[in-house]
Design a protein around this nucleic acid. Structure first.
Lengths: 193, 193
DNA sequence: CCAGCATATATCGAACCGATACAAACCGTT
DNA sequence: AACGGTTTGTATCGGTTCGATATATGCTGG
């Protein structure tokens, strides 16, 4: 799914600037679904203008810099619905937190617990912003389905982290020297069939 | 988190070929955590050899093509632990499925249900392969923490999809023509503060 | 016997990220 | 009033990564 399609999707919800589109994916209604950066958004918007899938006009604001507001055209809407018809790629997750945590045996236990705490704080923020960005009730059925899916996943993650963090504090006095130990250990061999 | 670090992480579990590393991220123990492609893995392994963070030897197999087996060095292990110490970036999710579903109002209801079915099938497969790739009990505490986190998330997703799919079949006779209708509708404006 | 599949390595162009630069306007503060 | 910090806003660029493709070996089923 390329940045053009993602921008068109954002514009389906109404006209927006590049900055506002980014906010939709960062804390907004798309935050639990997809991620896209400025470096993709601005070039994509230029292409959308080229293809006449969007129009643009400058809006002056008071107390803020001017912004370039983009609107989707009917050609753009058609192209977007066309893109939606393609078979979706499987979900891709990228969690540096979990990756690091999965090597927690080689780290001091205190660092692991600290990491989990920051993980919890991160997801608390996500859950907060997803709640802020819209009310459950005034959404059509399918939108509500996706909205609540995100909330459910976040709440489950938080619940898991909070309850099972305790399991790691119990035995926190044991095996604190594993970090040093690993430096002299050979890689585990033969474990990969 | 660059491909080099991800490969080093894979090699921390034991020696492996490029192909095997990929499998660790696709169906293996890293599948719920991170994703990395061949196009990143093979160049990364070359760099690891350059930096002497890994060694390589060719292994002949019967009934299969030869493979180049990589092992992490002690320098590599040090570099890896060093990389783990950096502050992790927030999780990034990329779900084309959910993105398409979030525009389900513009799609025929039958397509939406079909999408959900394929979503369920996908996550059933993930849950299956994560169960195959290791036993809960023989893992150290922190590894078990991450392992069960993945299982919990997958099970929650499946549970949500299965139960709430029904909500969308109830009213499946209504608003079947929304796909056509949208083509003549202007974009919703003013909804973005 | 041949098509299809799993194993295996490798590359390449297109796409994308993250950091950075720039700028306008606000805020508090010393 | 000058200063630094934050938010809003547009834009680019180097380096990284993806996804598709090419190539090859050998197994298996029809």
């Amino acid at each position: 799914m390329d940045a053009k399609t993602l921008c068109l999707g954002a514009l389906m919800h109404g006209e927006a600037s590049g900055y506002e589109i980014r906010k939709l994916f960062e804390g907004g209604p798309f935050s639990a679904i997809y991620d896209v950066s400025y470096g993709s958004i601005y070039p994509a918007l230029t292409v959308l203008l080229d293809k006449e899938w969007a129009t643009c006009c400058v809006a002056e604001q008071d107390g803020r810099p001017d912004k370039k507001v983009y609107s989707i055209t009917s050609d753009g809407r058609a192209a977007f619905l066309d893109a939606l018809a393609s078979t979706p790629a499987p979900d891709k997750m990228r969690s540096e937190m979990l990756f690091i945590l999965s090597f927690g045996d080689h780290l001091p236990r205190a660092n692991v617990l600290n990491l989990i705490d920051r993980y919890i704080a991160d997801y608390e923020g996500r859950l907060g912003s997803i709640h802020d960005c819209g009310d459950d009730t005034d959404l059509p059925a399918v939108r509500r389905f996706v909205h609540n899916f995100g909330i459910t996943m976040y709440e489950t993650a938080l619940d898991y982290l909070r309850t099972h963090r305790a399991d790691l504090t119990e035995e926190s006095n044991l095996a604190l020297d594993s970090t040093i130990a690993i430096k002299n250990q050979p890689a585990v061999s033969g474990s990969m069939q």
